[in-house]
Design a protein around this nucleic acid. Structure first.
Length: 139
RNA sequence: ACUACAAACCGGGUUAUCGCUCCUCCCGCUCGUGCUUGCACGGCAUGUGGAGGGGAGGAAAGUCCGGACAGCGCAGAGCAAUGUACCGGUGAAGAGCCGGGUUCGCCGCAAAGCAUCUUGUAUGCAGCGCAGUGAAACAGACAGUGCCACAGAGAAUAACUGCCUUCAGCCACCGGGUUUCCGGUAGUUUAGUUCGUAGUUCUGGCGUGGGUCUACGCCUUCGCCAGGGCUACGGAGGGUAAGGGUGAAAACGUAGGGUAAGAGCCUACGGUGUUGUACAGUAAUGUAUGGCAGGGGUAAACCUUACAUGCUGAAAUGCCAUGUAUACCAACGGUCGAGGGCUGCUCGUCCGAACCUCGUAAGAGGUCCGUUGGGUGGGUAGGCAGCAAGAGCCUGUCAGUAAUGCCAGGCCCAGAUAAAUGAUAACCGUACCAGUACGCCCACCGAUGCUUCGGUAAAGGCGGUGUACCGGUAAACAGAAUCCGGCUUACAGGUUUGUAGUUACU
């Protein structure tokens, strides 16, 4: 059975509180042209929520002063994530481990879709590794 | 056909796969109610459900004007601040738009005027025309203050050069007198003479201090006076604003008269400002005519005048949920005016807070109110409404020069909130580049203002151009955030219309 590659409202980081929390308490690493913030088990997770993995993107106004360019980067990034996130999502669902990811684009130039897609693959692999380790420590 | 300018419009399309958001319907869910016990109605943050439909712009941008809408405030007056500034219309309104006026340009005209020489249908000044075209935050510069780079004599009670005159000197001539001298005319203020000022020096006189010295006298310092020499500088007073060069701008322009020389001083023509009258126009204003006036520019320098203007903006605002939420502590004040409102300030005006216990009383304590928001502790930043049917869009008739408006018919057209409208691929269309095929055109040198003339060559070129095919490249400015009306700025390429020019044909 082929899983659908969706990215609806439920799968996006929308709460301002949660985003602040990811920045304040989460861990981060660089994967040019992105900077990744992530947080597993962010506090009291909503148990009713079916989607445990949440995702968001940001682009600085300083590097791209036109809204058109910022929108373009966010769309490309979301597209790349949407097509490749299933591995991580399955893992998280299996372990019942809530997770939040936030990417910040730190590059100075408009990227190509291929480049972004490759990078996101790398980022997701690192996150999967991290997700494997975390519950081992906790239990 | 091409080029330039102006205006209006468009701002790639189709298909496939995977996605996002909103709406509607169906299915589903479990809940409630009713009963006809499996249907109806209502509900649902349910549900990786299904189907259908909608989904960025001409500027969504800048946030520069104007509104709608919302909250707070609202006796009034003055000051301040801000804005507006020819007239009429339009519209909800405006620093918008439309029409008109005025001024200033561009442009055109060339009969007459003036100046200049290169004597030409020349250049400059002035003039005429208002056909065409453009610009103007377009009240006031005799209310006041300020500013006007560079250049220039001078940028505002103008005077360098120049022109004229009086005095003084010099020189020439003429007349009187004839030794000096007096009067007149012309020239000149350069040299010289004279005069004046300053410096220096010499001589004489007087005063004064010092040295030598009994004293006279002699020597010497300084000051004053008179005279002489030398050096340096310079005529003095007045009237003018025509000419000169500078500049963005120079004290109305041209001509004539006038004058010592000149000047709107006077006259003619013209122009500007202001004002009276008549006519035209809704008005701004124009035309005609009369009076008066002429020391510039700058108000997008301050300013003056007239008029207008409450403040804050969708993070407005209301409701729901969460929360002990007018939280607790401290200081000060509380029956006379603490304090607050009138959202910049002042006046003025309005509002305006007290009771209990103990005590004879003074007073004490408590609660309450206000201020300071000083200290401590806590909460929210979620949801719904606002929020998508409107000063709405399209088409047409009519009214109007137009902006615009009336009427009729049709249409429903984004609603996100870490913020949707995307990604990939193929094809088509557009523009450009290279290649191939086919068609059309042909040259070089010398002379000449042009027309043209003479010579060479007879096929060549990595030549020009059109059509078709194939391949490649390119496609701008830019992303709604309460909503409208404008303005401004950015913009690849394309379409249409108008005007002007060039070429070809008729």
């Amino acid at each position: 059975m082929v899983k659908k590659l969706t990215l609806g409202k439920e799968e996006r980081l929308k709460s301002r509180k949660l985003i602040d929390k990811v920045f304040a308490e989460g861990r981060n690493f660089n994967a040019f042209p992105f900077r990744v913030y992530y947080l597993f088990a962010p506090g009291k997770a909503i148990p009713a929520d079916k989607h445990l993995l949440k995702f968001g993107v940001g682009v600085s106004t300083r590097n791209f002063k036109h809204a058109v360019d910022r929108n373009r980067i966010k769309r490309i990034t979301r597209e790349g994530y949407r097509k490749q996130k299933n591995g991580l999502q399955d893992l998280v669902q299996q372990k019942q481990l809530p997770a939040a990811i936030f990417l910040i684009y730190t590059g100075k130039e408009l990227p190509q879709y291929d480049v972004v897609s490759e990078k996101i693959a790398v980022i997701l692999n690192r996150l999967i590794k991290a997700a494997h380790e975390i519950p081992a420590e906790a239990s």
